[in-house]
Design a protein around this nucleic acid. Structure first.
Lengths: 154, 154
DNA sequence: CCGATACACTTAACATGTTAATCATTCCAG
DNA sequence: CTGGAATGATTAACATGTTAAGTGTATCGG
């Protein structure tokens, strides 16, 4: 069997961890987890957004998002209201306090990202991202929701 | 600021999720989580191994590993004893029952891996893994353990 | 209208990620 | 030897990942 430490999932896991290890100390310093930061960052790119759409944007599952939004709201970093036309839907937006926090973290975050880019090479980084996107694309159809069966006959 | 959904951490996260989504149903069918599978797989590559080394091999933090080993031992999938020369160290190995489980899961797992490789292309996959390894390598020195400071002057 | 169904969350329950603290054992300077 | 530092592992505490179940609202056919 393939040496599992060289498998694709492990490669991806290690690479991501190597990257996130750079950011975590700064986020931690500002009292944010990686996921909370993702949500706030996502909220800066829109005026307001429904919870379901935010989940897709920040790549979080509903239950995780639900908990985190509760906490971020309690900390006054986001605001939430329900949609007028459909009371099932909740609309979330970042608060002034949340924006201020983003602005405090962003410079360090950008510097780290720049350092990574410089180390690895901007061109190489772009190529890597393209290949990762292609991988995602490749597997989009192989939905993979079967218990034991594997269907591979394309 | 960079569109965060196109950031490197997000690309890595999405790519890994796309891959793991393929494996999870099969693992779940066999009553294993991704991490439990990693541990059992790692144990098949050695006769016996100390907990600390296993953590590095399976890329898990100590506390997570500690909990999972407790559960795997309770299920009879692994065996544990303490090192003779140093009672602080614990030595772990896979049990016959654990091996049997591995053998039950492996065919499906291999088939899925083969399907992914075929879809994405074996050459491209190797190249991707090389680039991921290089990324890890790049960031190995940038240890990143400072609160707010960023030192980038290489 | 009404009841069944679908939808958008939210909660629940359990496993893991993450950092700090604890515990037992070993090592080592004096 | 011995007491303090170092080491290996576990436990604690809290946040998130993941699947299933629950809650309130909307929709739609009859």
């Amino acid at each position: 069997m393939r040496e599992f430490s060289r498998s694709l999932p492990m490669s991806l896991l290690r690479a991501r961890e190597a990257v996130m290890r750079q950011f975590r100390p700064s986020l931690r310093y500002h009292g944010l987890t990686e996921q909370q930061w993702r949500i706030l960052r996502a909220l800066t790119s829109v005026e307001a957004i429904e919870v379901t759409d935010l989940a897709r944007l920040a790549f979080l599952l509903g239950p995780s998002l639900s908990r985190i939004l509760r906490d971020l709201e309690a900390r006054g970093l986001i605001e939430r209201r329900s949609a007028e036309a459909d009371l099932r839907r909740a609309v979330v937006s970042i608060s002034p306090k949340g924006l201020k926090l983003i602005e405090a973290v962003a410079p360090t975050s950008e510097a780290i990202y720049a350092a990574i880019t410089k180390r690895y090479g901007a061109r190489k980084l772009a190529e890597l991202q393209a290949m990762l996107g292609a991988l995602e694309e490749s597997l989009a159809s192989l939905s993979g929701a079967e218990g034991e069966t594997v269907e591979v006959d394309e």
